[in-house]
């Protein structure tokens, strides 16, 4: 039948820091950079604070604190960070391309329906089938309240808003099953508002489009 690999290790099946696709990997790298920078800044500030109790008494000038540390320091760090964030963000946007696969997702309380441009009429419930190794654009909308679409190991999240269509780019590096979550609180069934992304290899994807395993 299909070439599904076993469910990835349970511990990280919903983990944004165990990426299984390029978008999630880029953001995971971003996170580790942010963590390292934040830790360094925190230790620096804590050190300055502790030194207030240790330093010998004496005059303290205002400018190094207010202008140097207060203005120049954050402006430099933030400018670099902002540029990095924008570049990363641009790279994650859905762009045109020959091999982009388009799928449609409609959320409702408390289920997901998925449709496929490559297989008109084909609808799957709570299971999204995609080809591995190819960019996939998920066109999101909602039938009732605001929902969120999130496959933590593949990409960031995007909301499904009634009357609007939002497009999220995701891609799985390898065939497998990836946990998906409704990520915007939507009432009593919220905790169970989940779905599974099934990434196929090329032959498996063709088989899925041809209607096998229906």
């Amino acid at each position: 039948m299909t070439t599904l690999v076993a469910l990835a290790g349970c511990e990280e099946s919903l983990s944004a820091v165990h990426p299984a696709g390029p978008a999630a990997a880029t953001i995971a790298t971003l996170w580790w950079v942010l963590l390292a920078g934040a830790t360094a800044i925190f230790l620096f500030v804590a050190g300055l604070l502790a030194w207030a109790w240790r330093r010998p008494p004496g005059e303290v000038a205002e400018r190094p604190f207010v202008i140097g540390l207060g203005l120049a320091f954050p402006l430099t760090v933030l400018a670099a960070l902002l540029a990095y964030g924008l570049v990363v963000g641009e790279r994650l946007l859905p762009r045109g391309g020959a091999d982009v696969v388009v799928v449609r997702a409609e959320a409702r309380q408390w289920a997901w329906s998925f449709g496929y441009d490559d297989a008109p009429g084909r609808v799957t419930e709570d299971e999204l089938h995609i080809p591995a190794g190819r960019p996939v654009d998920v066109a999101l909308t909602s039938a009732d309240v605001v929902h969120g679409f999130w496959v933590p190991r593949l990409a960031g999240k995007l909301d499904a808003v009634p009357g609007h269509v939002n497009v999220l780019r995701l891609e799985a590096d390898a065939p497998g099953r990836y946990g998906g979550l409704g990520s915007e609180f939507n009432g009593v069934g919220y905790v169970g508002h989940r779905f599974t992304v099934i990434a196929h290899d090329a032959t498996g994807w063709q088989a899925f489009l041809a209607g096998e395993g229906e």
Binding site: L81, K157, S183, E184
Partner: peptide, 11 residues
């Protein structure tokens, strides 16, 4: 930072 928020949002 927008891309990080796409993962962290609502968690």
């Amino acid at each position: 930072v927008v891309p990080f928020d796409w993962q962290a949002h609502d968690t």
